[in-house]
Design a protein around this nucleic acid. Structure first.
Lengths: 333, 333
DNA sequence: CTGTTAGCGCTTTCAT
DNA sequence: ATGAAAGCGCTAACAG
């Protein structure tokens, strides 16, 4: 790989001149500039971004931290961030936290070591403290799906409470009165908010909340199944079920079918997230949309503002909306 | 961030000593070593991998090039590579090619500029030439799902022909004689191989190949629909359909249902890849497994061998297998 | 075994 | 507008 020296040599100028045409910040004599460009072409010169990064302690790339690489949710998140940043000529460095504290911290240190200009993350295990400290160091962060005081506009969140409300309210409007709820893990803030929304809808409709009718899962397909089984074995009957995400809804659906139930006649089910497969399941799943792509893009935009001097509006709170498909129907006595 | 100088200072040694304990290649006086480690701890020292990379032109990280970030297929690929490499303490830098020549080349140059020690890629647009050149430069590459002479063991491929054969053969064994085929784009090698397998199964069973019964799509859900419609409008009836991937199968299935067909009674369908959603569709999809995770992991292992001195066996050809679910059934006259 | 000294390829004052 | 020179944080000969 040709270096800037060789280019300077070939063009008969100093390396600072080459550097200048490279960065285009200051003006360079057109004639020299042409020579330099010619030399770069001839030598097939590619600037070494490592060297540049060492010299500037910038890198024109932002880190992303996701929990998993192979989930539709994180797929959408990564895709949106990458697209937004690519449009601004920034690169993206993806790391994985595997939902584990140590791995998440490793990932962040990797990114710091790589001179990332900022980090966009979906951190599940890290403490608020750590995140706050991180953000107040010279490395801006943006948190998707998590609210941490002290990170301010960097937090891009969904109104989960509203989503939970929407799901349950939909069922109530369909005439259901006994509604089961399969929740996410209670140490996840989004899970609690969704559940809170569920309770609010119940309360608003004058329906008493029945603790027996909620099962706490961990967002997996298996837990959807386990949850349904558990709820069914209890002594509180129900004609509808809301699941705090689509995976659990899918698990509950196939379990219900295995049990010989007819969907949605015997049980109305609503999910949450509108994952890609929501319209693949049968019956197609009524769910609450989670505009993760928009949120991720916004997160990227915030970073663009903060570190690269852009001046776009940023919206920090996103609204979910109900997507009615075929997995829910009116209550039949 | 503390530098190696400050550590050396604090520990009262030279920076080379610090460098030595850092890399652990040569022996260092235990007493000094302890001092250094203490100093590192006190200063919360983190080596700057950029600087190290500039000095060594190595980076302990390997690049990955995928076509998309948000597809189950590439999700599995990335996940497997990341896991394998993480276990060997290597990092991964992911880039996206968007199925576009220029973007793919950009991505590769980004990776080169970042001093990646190797690249694992699923390159769709790049020419064999380019790939070969790349590989013969000092940067080893590994190609998943693509065979390029000159890259040798770096090519990790699936026996696509076998897969196509399996799919069709399954249908034939079920008594079907008129079998539609929705193919992938004919400029994709895997698509052609799968089709070739289909033809072989037909021939072996003494069934004449009917060009009218094949539709060329581009692996999208929409094309599954378009394909079915096109085939249905033709004058060659068929009782079964093989789709060259699960997306198209899914599209064909929902289209068929929209048309009022009963599945699988009116039409048996088999897919290819065994994507996550294959068991979400209804009826659950009979398909051909594509062991992409294993292949990706193998690809990583090959890189580990070539650039980091590991000595594992590598297998370059993988076999697909038939996964029978509920979307296919015996032919009824 | 330890310290000194050059770089790695580029940016960035500082003069000119 | 251009060039010379210092330095980003680290590794790797080379002496000692």
């Amino acid at each position: 790989m040709a270096t800037i020296y060789e280019v300077a040599d070939k063009a008969g100028v100093s390396l600072s001149t080459v550097s200048r045409v490279l960065n285009g910040k200051t003006t360079v004599n057109p004639a020299l500039k042409a020579k330099v460009e010619e030399a770069m072409l001839a030598l097939n010169y590619r600037p070494n971004s490592i060297a540049r990064s060492l010299a500037t302690s910038r890198s024109d790339s932002v880190g992303i931290l996701v929990s998993e690489l192979n989930s539709p949710f994180f797929g959408d998140l990564m895709q949106a961030v990458e697209l937004t940043l690519r449009a601004a000529d920034k690169h993206v460095i993806i790391t994985v936290g595997h939902n584990n504290l140590e791995t998440e911290q490793d990932a962040v240190e990797f990114l710091i070591g790589r001179n990332c200009d900022a980090i966009i993350m979906h951190a599940e295990a890290m403490s608020d403290e750590y995140l706050k400290t991180l953000n107040s160091s010279r490395l801006p962060i943006s948190l998707v799906n998590r609210q941490v005081d002290g990170v301010g506009e960097g937090c891009i969140v969904l109104d989960n409470e509203k989503g939970g409300y929407l799901a349950t309210q939909h069922l109530i409007s369909l005439g259901h009165k006994n509604i089961g709820y399969i929740s996410g893990p209670s140490d996840k803030c989004d899970a609690n908010q969704r559940l809170a929304g569920h309770k609010r809808a119940l309360k608003e409709a004058g329906i008493a909340f029945t603790p027996n009718l909620v099962f706490e899962g961990s967002y997996t397909e298996e837990d959807g199944k386990a949850g349904l089984l558990e709820l069914l074995s209890g002594d509180s009957p129900f004609s509808a079920l809301v699941c705090a995400n689509d995976w659990m809804a899918s698990g509950a659906m196939s379990c219900a079918r295995d049990l010989g139930m007819n969907l949605p006649q015997d049980l109305s089910i609503v999910g949450f997230d509108d994952a890609v497969f929501a319209h693949h399941v049968f019956p197609r799943l009524t769910t609450v949309s989670n505009p993760i792509s928009d949120m991720a893009a916004m997160s990227a935009r915030h970073i663009l503002n903060v570190v690269y001097g852009y001046k776009d509006e940023v919206q920090t709170l996103f609204q979910p909306s109900l997507i009615i498909r075929e997995s829910t129907m009116a209550y039949e006595a």
